[in-house]
Design a protein around this nucleic acid. Structure first.
Length: 219
DNA sequence: AACAAGATTAACT
DNA sequence: GTTAATCTTGTTA
């Protein structure tokens, strides 16, 4: 197997998305393109990473489900208004840190919620955080669960995802095709009225992603 | 200053 | 299917 298919054989500049990747104002398009990319967390315990398998688009000021709906520019949403390519992390229900990718040019508060990953590196560290061994098919599914696995919290709010550092996203070399992806309405946003039925959720099939990962030699 | 709600999860019945 | 856990944020007074 030629390792240039995966990220291992690539130089950093080739692994990282183009500068324009996050600046696209089509947040739904970016949500789909993030599927199959690798998110990496560099913590005191070590490196943890996973392939992104589920995302949701939040379309700025016009989307009733978005924290920035109606132009709400508050202490919490301020990072959403910055230039795309950074993390927006907030605490939900007082318990769970939820991780978003801020997208679009500065002033356009678009964001993509990361709802699921397939754990790749750092399984032992993740198991420690879970206090039990991890099931790679299940334990990365859920926005509050993957942040726990990756050790992501509110200290990651505003982190630069475009360059290796604390938390970043890179190309994995995996090809997630449309036939592996289900789209549908977003989860847990009943308050959003008519916008609750927008098909802004994208879920890649775990089994097919796992197959692609093994074929590419990523594990 | 007070308060209601929340882009969830795990553990119940 | 129901519910508790848990606390920041944004809104209202």
């Amino acid at each position: 197997m030629d390792s240039s298919d995966g990220s291992q054989g690539m130089r950093i500049s080739e692994r990282m998305p183009d500068r324009d990747f996050y600046l696209d104002d089509d947040v739904v398009g970016i949500s789909k393109r993030l599927l199959g990319m690798k998110i990496v967390s560099n913590t005191p315990e070590g490196i943890c990473s996973g392939i992104i398998t589920e995302t949701e688009a939040y379309a700025g000021e016009t989307d009733r489900a978005s924290h920035a709906f109606g132009g709400r520019l508050t202490q919490r949403t301020e990072v959403m208004y910055r230039e795309g390519g950074i993390a927006y992390v907030y605490l939900c229900y007082g318990l769970h840190s939820l991780l978003n990718v801020v997208t679009g040019p500065a002033g356009l508060p678009h964001a993509v919620l990361i709802r699921g990953i397939y754990p790749l590196e750092g399984a032992g560290i993740m198991a420690g955080r879970l206090k039990r061994s991890i099931d790679v098919r299940k334990d990365g599914l859920g926005p509050g669960k993957l942040t726990r696995l990756l050790g992501v919290g509110k200290s990651h709010n505003g982190a630069d995802l475009r360059n290796p550092g604390l938390l970043w996203i890179e190309h994995s070399g995996l090809a997630i095709t449309e036939n592996m992806v289900i789209s549908g309405p977003r989860i847990g946003i009943d308050y959003a009225g008519e916008d609750a039925m927008l098909p802004y959720r994208f879920l890649a099939d775990v089994v097919q992603v796992e197959k692609a990962i093994k074929k590419a030699g990523l594990v």
